[in-house]
């Protein structure tokens, strides 16, 4: 079936099988491989993308269901003026090791700080509890999301 999804600001019209999962569409048809697959049971969140601004697990959404939506993947986080604050904070606070969960963690983090400019440790842990990380023990992920929130708040206060 014909679908058209706006991914990171660009339109992608394609003909897909109804059964095509959004994550496979993004990875294999569109060719953006920053979105990963880590499980089959909607448990790990490695495939997280923002669909119309809301984080969802792209392994459990049909590509056809995203027809007409705006999807943001990790490749779309960076803006015209450089890295998204969440990206630089992940590096600064050592919020990633192998990097496999990182795209999902950053997208959830970006979505959290858009709603909650000053998330507590518990707020962040709760928000990322649909995303698994096997490397970091989460401590530095939490820290990075808080750092990004603080930087966003600071820059909006300053402007």
């Amino acid at each position: 079936m014909e679908i058209n999804i706006t991914i990171n600001g660009s339109d992608h019209a394609s003909d897909v099988e109804p059964r095509t999962l959004l994550v496979d569409h993004i990875r294999r048809t569109v060719g953006l491989t920053g979105t990963h697959v880590g499980c089959d049971t909607t448990s790990c969140g490695a495939c997280t993308v923002l669909m119309d601004g809301t984080p969802v697990k792209a392994c459990t959404v049909l590509a056809a269901q995203a027809d007409g939506s705006e999807v943001t993947t990790v490749e779309g986080l960076k803006g015209a003026d450089g890295l998204h604050p969440i990206q630089s904070a992940f590096t600064d606070d050592h919020g990633l090791q192998c990097g496999f969960c990182t795209p999902g963690m950053m997208l959830v983090g970006a979505s959290l700080i858009a709603e909650n400019p000053d998330p507590s440790d518990d707020d962040v842990r709760w928000a990322i509890s649909g995303n698994l990380c096997r490397c970091t023990g989460y401590i530095n992920i939490v820290k990075a999301i808080q750092t990004a929130a603080a930087r966003v708040a600071e820059s909006s206060n300053g402007s």
């Binding site: 890295l83 992940f90 050592h94």
Partner: peptide, 21 residues
């Protein structure tokens, strides 16, 4: 020292096995 490998990973430019096409 900040990690050199991060630059590609935070932009979704890592090259994992399933990314090889």
């Amino acid at each position: 020292v900040q990690r050199k490998e991060d630059a590609r990973l935070i932009e979704g430019q890592g090259n994992f096995l399933d990314d090889i096409d």
